[in-house]
């Protein structure tokens, strides 16, 4: 549970740090990508903390090149 609070705190800090600057400079595209990536990061971390099974990215490498072996 503390890990989950930690990740939300990091996400909140990132929003507090980045968003006012991006809004001030009218960087809309940057803002959208920032929120998309942050949402992915928070979702993945939450899934990890809740011990949900996440796919191993190196399994992708294995699948891509298993025909060679």
């Amino acid at each position: 549970m503390s890990s989950l609070i930690g990740v939300f705190a990091i996400a909140a800090a990132a929003v507090w740090l980045e968003v006012p600057r991006l809004i001030h400079r009218e960087h809309k595209r940057e803002l959208v990508l920032f929120f998309i990536l942050l949402a992915i990061g928070v979702a993945l971390y939450s899934a990890l903390v809740m011990e949900a099974s996440l796919p191993n990215p190196f399994e992708l490498v294995k699948i891509m090149f298993s025909w060679v072996m």
């Binding site: 990740v7 990091i10 980045e18 600057r21 400079r25 992915i40 990061g41 899934a47 996440l54």
Partner: peptide
């Protein structure tokens, strides 16, 4: 085609952290 890249660092770092643990 973004004008800045600093704001991508924390979200990308979070994604890398999780996928490193999983991998």
């Amino acid at each position: 085609k973004l004008r800045d890249s600093d704001m991508l660092t924390v979200p990308l770092g979070m994604i890398m952290l999780v996928l490193t643990v999983v991998s």
